[in-house]
Design a protein around this nucleic acid. Sequence first.
DNA 1: GTGGTCTAGACCACC
DNA 2: GTGGTCTAGACCACT
Lengths: 127, 127, 127, 127
Amino acid sequence: MISLNYRDSRPIYEQVRDGLRHLVVTGAITEGEKLPSVRALAASLAINPNTIQRAYAALEEEGYLTSEPGRGAFAARGGAGGNNLRQEALLRQFDASARELVFLGMTPEELAARISLAAAERKGEGA
Amino acid sequence: MISLNYRDSRPIYEQVRDGLRHLVVTGAITEGEKLPSVRALAASLAINPNTIQRAYAALEEEGYLTSEPGRGAFAARGGAGGNNLRQEALLRQFDASARELVFLGMTPEELAARISLAAAERKGEGA
Amino acid sequence: MISLNYRDSRPIYEQVRDGLRHLVVTGAITEGEKLPSVRALAASLAINPNTIQRAYAALEEEGYLTSEPGRGAFAARGGAGGNNLRQEALLRQFDASARELVFLGMTPEELAARISLAAAERKGEGA
Amino acid sequence: MISLNYRDSRPIYEQVRDGLRHLVVTGAITEGEKLPSVRALAASLAINPNTIQRAYAALEEEGYLTSEPGRGAFAARGGAGGNNLRQEALLRQFDASARELVFLGMTPEELAARISLAAAERKGEGA
DNA sequence: GTGGTCTAGACCACC
DNA sequence: GTGGTCTAGACCACT
């Protein structure tokens, strides 16, 4: 399901992370579905469990999955609409950065002005 | 300079990260100053270099230091005023989250309204 | 003239190599023109001369430039038409690989059959 | 196992590269066998790890070994017969050069004609 | 601990 | 001054 390219200069864990994110976002792994265990996926890709663990941790931080110790990791919805983990994670990030930027001296007005600008830009910017 | 508590539930790398962040923010490590090498700090704390590496990576992402391959890691200024990496990192984070939240359907007005609210709250530094 | 992205996971020397190759192929650096010295380009990009040297060596192997110790590095023509260093390098590579493949047991007919196939494919395949 | 001659005009890394290639081709290092680590071989030859690294990189490009970050470097079979990395590398090189030569205007027929010629020549391995 | 990339600074041979 | 090689030592991703 995930293809790795060892000749790619991108780290393996990023390839795994992006591959899984893609599966979640596109719905290939449906909301709430259990993801393969770290060890199972590691075995199936013939890489080290640490590398999978790192990809899972990144995706959890991004809100694309939740992992429950002892149970496994479960997909959250990545698409638009409804409240979901991804959106919660983004709001957490948004609030935290806004809070500290104001603390550092930026005004709420300056920040508000950036929002529309940011929204208009292309996402681009690879790893 | 950094004290580790192995009985603490917080992972070692977080203890190192927070310890280093504190040194930078308080100015104990001054702007531009070279931090100890990954291996040196690992040796001095008697822990694995990987753990230090993880703390350094987190701090670089947060903008508290820059690490230049082959040269070392250097402290950035954490405080307010002037151009600093921390502010750049926060703006990057702010823009990215705003962009995706708008993509997910929130309006710029809703987001703008959150800014003042967020700024008023206590920081509540999580683990 | 060449832009570096330190956050890119692609190594610096590949970015330099590809940037220079592009300048030669597009004719921005004309045939026979002297390229900046290893040290000068290193200084202008604020990176180590060794890194530039590595890019120059790769481009020489590919036939995009010749470098003469004590004199400098000079661009070859990258475009189509006429005989040029790039084509010479390719023919050298073609002959050498064909020779050894025949030595390893492939027949000239098998190889000839591959040519048209290869020519039809997309070049793709990033680093 | 590898002898270095510092009075030889050939660079150390080429002497190492050719020495290793010889060991692989002659079967002194058998197919799939793990080569000494970069650091270990450097220590044993009393030279810098970078120099060994350079030789390993060249041999990997030639298909005589594969190196897997974090695991080590492993010998491929250099001889004829069966599937081996060397042949794969040669085919990759053959296809790539053929493709670009056609792109530059040579006809597949011209190239096909070169194959038998090339195969008849002596190998003339340069420094 | 392993391969890979980068920096810094040195020396060489050539011009 | 120029390209080329080498050393020493750093960070980096991964096992």
